[in-house]
Every structure is written in structure tokens, then in C-alpha cells.
Design a binder for these strands. Sequence first.
DNA 1: GTTAGCACTCGAACAGATTGAGTGCTAATA
DNA 2: TATTAGCACTCAATCTGTTCGAGTGCTAAC
Lengths: 344, 344
Amino acid sequence: MLLSERKLKILQAIINDYIATAEPIGSRTIAKKNDIGLSSATIRNEMSDLEDMGLIIQPHASAGRVPSDKGYRLYVDNLMNRKELSADQTNFLYKLIQENFDNIEYLMQETAKAISFITNYTTIISEPQIIKLIVKHIQLVPYDENSIAMILVTESKMIKNYVIKMQSPPEFDVLSNMSLILNKIVMGKNLVDIDLSLVKNELQTMGEEGQALLKIIDFIWKMVLSESNVEVYTSGVKNILTFPEFSDFNKAKSVFQALEEKDILITLLGKDHTEDLKIIIGNENSIEQIKDCSLIKAGYKLGDELYGTIGILGPTRMNYAEVVSVLYEIEKNLSQTLRALKGG
Amino acid sequence: MLLSERKLKILQAIINDYIATAEPIGSRTIAKKNDIGLSSATIRNEMSDLEDMGLIIQPHASAGRVPSDKGYRLYVDNLMNRKELSADQTNFLYKLIQENFDNIEYLMQETAKAISFITNYTTIISEPQIIKLIVKHIQLVPYDENSIAMILVTESKMIKNYVIKMQSPPEFDVLSNMSLILNKIVMGKNLVDIDLSLVKNELQTMGEEGQALLKIIDFIWKMVLSESNVEVYTSGVKNILTFPEFSDFNKAKSVFQALEEKDILITLLGKDHTEDLKIIIGNENSIEQIKDCSLIKAGYKLGDELYGTIGILGPTRMNYAEVVSVLYEIEKNLSQTLRALKGG
DNA sequence: GTTAGCACTCGAACAGATTGAGTGCTAATA
DNA sequence: TATTAGCACTCAATCTGTTCGAGTGCTAAC
């Protein structure tokens, strides 16, 4: 069957209305609200076709129609118009990023909050994997009787702490010296790209300090291997309760459950962090608990190398156009701010 | 009116039953379930008295009785028996603390998770205020073109990072030197107790490094003054949805809302961090959104100086006895583990 | 002082009846 | 031939009335 211009218009009308009201839409409503210039009867026939094509669904015999996942897919791929953000919203995001750019972790948490605030959906943000970032500085400091602390500062302004176990950890001045050696090895590179076995061989030949450094290299090695070592923040989880589709308690609960598990969040956002915007609708995602949700996500970039992902989760009936705009706006701001900083 | 032994028994029966079932309890149910040796009619009279005293409430004329906040208060103060934890639960907590003791932040987050898992309520944990902890080491490292990073390690095994703005931040070797001076000032003390104005005067007399250090001292000063600079973690928020008292959507939502706001969480846990266990029932707390909840909280102590607070939030009908036991168990473990470490 | 008995209350649960938004089909119309 | 008006039909949602039962308070007897 052919998807005529007219059918598309009707589908769009159904989706727009359903996004706004969460109520199934009938032919008469479409005829009245939109000026398509057709009677309800004609629309009825077209809707029957759209249903045959799997783009809309009738919840029960005497109800209106509701978009299917396939219908949303067609909508976001072909029909959706970008929505302009209001000046207020743009400013809000701009200021936020300006003001917090010097503390990346905080910036990310605040960004998540801001997105949830603007969109009323739930935001999930993943930090980049530290091992893929360029190291600016590495520092060893005393921690306790059995361990030392390693502080990692990256070019992209992240600071991370690690505790490394060690019998009789060296005094501070020794640690200082070790830090110098370590910095020579890793500064300006990322941990993934360093050939740790090579470094290890080198250290073998050194004295006591070399032995201690071996421990640290071992630790870094483990970090590199364990991929899941990424922080994920959520914000606006409570917003889920706003939507009538989750007024069934068990549905709401299963979404909450999913959002409390870090593994699930990481799976959701994916590890590839591609910059392209991706929309995952309903059952398209692999996680059973959130099959009634859609996720819009995009990788973000602060420096040349820093990749994490921002995801916005809402009901399949979410306002795709608005969310996409918000995401674009944020990406734009982040890169603009960075360029301004580099220039100044 | 006198609170006879018999009345207390009946009150206890009502509370126990209500905690278990969340259904109003009638006189006949009490007569059948508990072997008080009284007829339902007698119990009815006693219940009428208990209601006059404000200890129980009748939701509507033909319903059973439900404990009031005042009733719970009397219960937790006088009637409640400590509940022994199962060996499984004890072991679980013990292992958890043993295994994560070297990373305090992680330990606290895991502890929160564990408590929620065992009790099925929501856990809130506040980190101690860093300025009140004894500094073990302080380190300045490069950060970006406009700022340096300050790393603070405390005797009680916390590591915190701060970004300090600074025009033309010093090179690493200068920072190293500055770190040495800074360490001399703060090591072994807590930031609150240092007389910063005295330090400032001293630094005035020093050269360029002194000037840079002044900036840092200023920053620390601000930290000391801003009290709210505390991390708070929550876990098991979704558990709220389990309880029939929150099957009203708006009620659930307002609780979620409160739990997403850091200020509210800090207010809830309080800033005093006293070690005593405190139980705050329903309306006794000042925050409107959670007036249908009770909070059981206690300060925790890892070293001699480290104080934060653990709070467990549930419906007023929560299992006070169990939660109290869990909290005691955790406190016991934390101090035991610490002692063992100090000894070994 | 305790209890059995009884009238009374009131929410919950159930069963029709009614309503209205929606459909599909058919025949008339442009 | 495409569109539309008209009509019968469907079914969830809502309303109404009834019954049921868990609970109470009161009174009189033990």
C-alpha cells in the first residue's frame, strides 16, 4: 500500500495529538481539530489503512487510534519538525554551561538537572571512560597504612581518585619522586594507548621505587581492562510518575528499578559514545523494563577527545522534537564554550 | 486517664498488626490473633479509651483503628523490642564493611544500598563535612589554563578534589613547593580549627609563592564558611512505591521530589551528626512532603573524628524494631573494623 | 468489671443501566 | 471514482442501587 501525502498528514495529526493528550484519537477529532478538509468518514478509511500498515494501533474495538512504535519511527525519521527553543530556555542552558565549565563533574550533574527541568523527562548522563582521556597530570599521595592514593587529572578537566593497596607504602617524598617518573610515562597520552608491558620491563631494571611503581602500573592495567568503570548520573527520575502511561504501579516500579541499576544505564547509553543523535523507540531497546519508554541520546564532546553520552528517557509518547532541540542546543553550547576558552 | 498494662498490650497489638498489614485493625481481630484473654467487647472499650488519648485513630466510622503519630511515639519509646538480625544479615553487613573499608565513599554508597536491600526502605547517607576532619595530606596539582586543583586526603580516608581559579597558575614544581608549605600548616589539624587570619598574615611576608598561597587560603576560608558543602547519597528510592500508603500518586511524587533535593536531605539528616539514634515520626519532621514518613537516623563514626549521618526513611508504619537493629549492627561493625585495623 | 447481643454505620464489591466516543459498512452524491 | 452522510454496532467509562461484612457503640445480663 502506498503512503500518500494525505495518509502522512493524518498520521502526523494522530501523533501530535497523542503526544499532547495521551488519549487515543478518533477520526472525528482529527476532522475537527486539523484543517485537512476531509470528513471523518474519509479519515476513517485512511486510518484503517494506516492500521493495516502497522503504523497505528487500536487499543480496543470502540476506541480511537494510538501510534505504534513503527509509527513513531516513521514520524521521527520523516515527519518531525525541529522545534525552536524559547530564548529563556536557550539562555538558561547557555548560562549553566558557562558558569560550571571549570568543574566537569558538577557541570554534568547540573546539565542533567537542567535537561530534566526543561523537558520534564528523565536524564541519564555517562561520564567518559577515564582511560581514553589524555592525562594532564598524575600524582601519588599518602593515604593510609596500607595504601596510597593516585590522583589523575585529564586535559578535559576531570579529576579522579584511586586508592592503591601497597604493603608499607612509601613516604611522601618518595611518592613525589615516583609521581615525576609516572608523569613522564603518561602525560599527554591516554592510558589505553600506553604499552604497559613495555613500561613494566623498563621499571624492572629500576630499584625500590621501580618495584613500587610496578604495583601502580598493575593497578592501571586493571583499570584499562575493566570497561564498566564509568560513572552514570540520573536526574528527574520522579518525572516518570507524571505520565499517565505509568499510572500502573508495576510499570512505574520496573522503570525505577532499571534506573537504579548502573549496568542497565550503561547498556542503555551504550559504550560507543558516537556523536550522532540516536532515537530508540519502545521495544527497539533491549531492556524489558523500559519497553514503554523511548530514549533519545547523543554523545557529547568537550575537548577533542572527551566522549560521554547524554540520554533522555520518557514515554514512547514523548515530545521528540523538543528533546532533540534541547540536545542540539547543549552540544552547540559545549563546543562553543570550549572554543571561546581556547581562544581566550 | 491511666495507661494500664492492658491498654499498652492492646496498643502494641494494633501497632504490630498494622506494621505488618497496613490495614486498620478491629477489636475482633485483636481478640482472635493475640491471646490477651479478653473478649472483643472489652477490647472495644479499651480501644475507645486509646482513641480518646490520641494514640490511635479511626479512619472512618465503621473501620478499625490505626496508630497515630503519638501512638508510634509511645511505641518506639516504651514498647518496642529490639529485633535480632539473622546470621545472614549480620554476615552480609560485616563482609560489606570489611571489603570496602579502604574506600570510604564507595563504602558509604554500598552501605546505603545494603541497608535498602535488607530493610526495603529508602536510605540516605551524608558524608561528613570535610572541614571538620583531620587533614592527612594536601596536594596542589595543575588543572587548566585558569585554575589549579587541590586534593585533600583526611585521616579518615576521604579524598576530595577542589578546583581553584587563579590567573596564570604556577607550574608543577612551584605547586609542589607550595604543597609542602600548605602541608606544614594544615597537616594533622582540621580546617575549622586553623586560624586562617593568622596564616594569612604570615603569608603576606612571603614572596610570589605566598601570594599564590593566599588565594588558596581564601578558597579554604570560603569552604569553611559554606556549611552546606556536603555530599548526600540515597538508595532504594523506588522502594517507596512498594507501600500501599503511597499508592496515591501525588503522595509518592511528593516524596520523590523531596528525595531529589539535596537541601531537603541535608535538613532531614541534620548537621549535628550526634551518634545517638533518633526516630522522627510523621509530622514530627518539618518537611511537609514527607509527613507520612518516618525517619530513623544515627550519626556514624569511622575514626575518632569522622561524623556523618545514616537515615532510613519509610512509611510511618515502618518496622522500627528491625531498622534500629540494622543501624546498631552497622555502627558496631564500623567501629570494630576500625579497631582491628588500628591494632593490626 | 466483663461480656454477649444487637442495632447501626459505612466502605468495598458487584451488577446492571446509561452514555458517548469511536468504528465499519453501505448507499447516495459530486 | 473518490468522498461523504447516515446508521447500526461496540465497548470502556461512568453512574446507580444493592448487598456484604467488618467494624463500632450501647445496653443489659453475668
